[in-house]
Computed example of a mutant assay.
Amino acid sequence: MTSAPHTTPSSQQSALQLLMSRQSRWPLTEPAPSQAELDQVLDLALRAPDHGQLQPWRFVVVRGEARQALGEVFVQAAKARDPHGDPQGDAERFRHKAMAAPLLIAMGAHLRPGHKVPQSEQLLAVGAAAMNLLNGLHLLGYGGFWATGLNSHDARVKTALGFAATDALIGFLYIGTPKEAAPHVERPARQRFVREWAPDASLLNAGQTETL
């Protein structure tokens, strides 16, 4: 295996070890990434696999006072979903969620119905971009938390954020600096999830025959 440009085996191992320590972090506080750092991780997101080069990624950055407006959007959406609910209960809980980190990214997928690339693969491209975002944030020393829930499936929220009708809102990425040290998380043994395929002998023999 050859080393990537401008890297050494030791630096590669250091990067891998750092990525191995990534986990969802909560709660999050200031500081958030600088604009330059945010630009870096967004550029990293755009390097995700993209079948058909459809570029379905759509990111809406929410920070500062805009979070308060997003909180009001969450409240109005919650009230519309449950007009007879407790206005000081569930709806206000969503308002606080908008302020739970110094920076949020609403992650959307610009879907193309009827395209030869299935919509499931278009969604996967955005999921891969989200993972690139999380990894990039972690490498820069920030924490990230990918949240979905009712607001991710609410057309009112999607419209308020400026997404198109055919777009899918796949969640909100909460970003900031972790308030606490990362707890130890026991990772599952890879053997539970990985196996090597042992093809039937007839398939191997068929392949040999075709190459003669």
Rank of each mutant, 00 (worst) to 15 (best):
L42P: 03
L42V: 09
L42I: 15
L44K: 07
A45F: 04
A48W: 14
H51C: 11
G52D: 04
Q53M: 12
L54Q: 09
P56V: 01
R58S: 05
R58E: 05
F59C: 04
F59K: 03
F59Q: 11
V60A: 05
V60E: 07
V61K: 06
R63F: 05
G64W: 13
G64D: 12
E65I: 12
E65G: 08
R67F: 13
A69W: 10
G71E: 09
F74E: 07
V75E: 13
Q76L: 12
Q76P: 04
A80P: 10
D82F: 14
D82E: 10
H84Q: 15
H84W: 14
G85C: 04
D86G: 08
P87E: 08
G89L: 01
G89R: 11
G89N: 09
A91I: 04
E92W: 12
R93L: 14
F94P: 00
R95I: 06
R95M: 09
A98E: 01
A98D: 14
A98F: 03
A98Q: 07
A98S: 09
A98P: 10
M99A: 09
M99Q: 12
A101V: 06
A101R: 09
L103G: 01
L104P: 01
L104A: 10
I105N: 02
A106F: 05
G108I: 09
L111P: 01
L111Q: 00
R112P: 03
P113S: 13
H115A: 12
K116T: 12
K116P: 05
V117R: 01
P118Q: 07
Q119E: 14
S120M: 07
E121N: 06
Q122I: 03
L123W: 08
V126Y: 00
A128W: 01
A130Y: 02
N132L: 00
N132S: 04
N135G: 04
N135I: 00
L137Y: 08
H138T: 05
H138E: 06
L139H: 06
L140E: 13
Y142S: 03
Y142W: 10
G143T: 05
G143P: 00
G144W: 04
G144I: 04
G144H: 07
F145Y: 14
T148K: 08
G149C: 13
L150E: 13
L150I: 13
N151C: 13
N151H: 15
N151T: 12
S152C: 13
D154I: 03
R156E: 04
T159P: 06
A160S: 14
A160G: 15
G162A: 10
G162V: 07
G162H: 07
D167L: 07
D167I: 05
L169F: 01
I170S: 00
F172D: 02
L173C: 13
L173V: 14
Y174P: 12
G176E: 12
T177I: 11
K179M: 15
K179I: 13
A182M: 01
P183Q: 06
P183D: 11
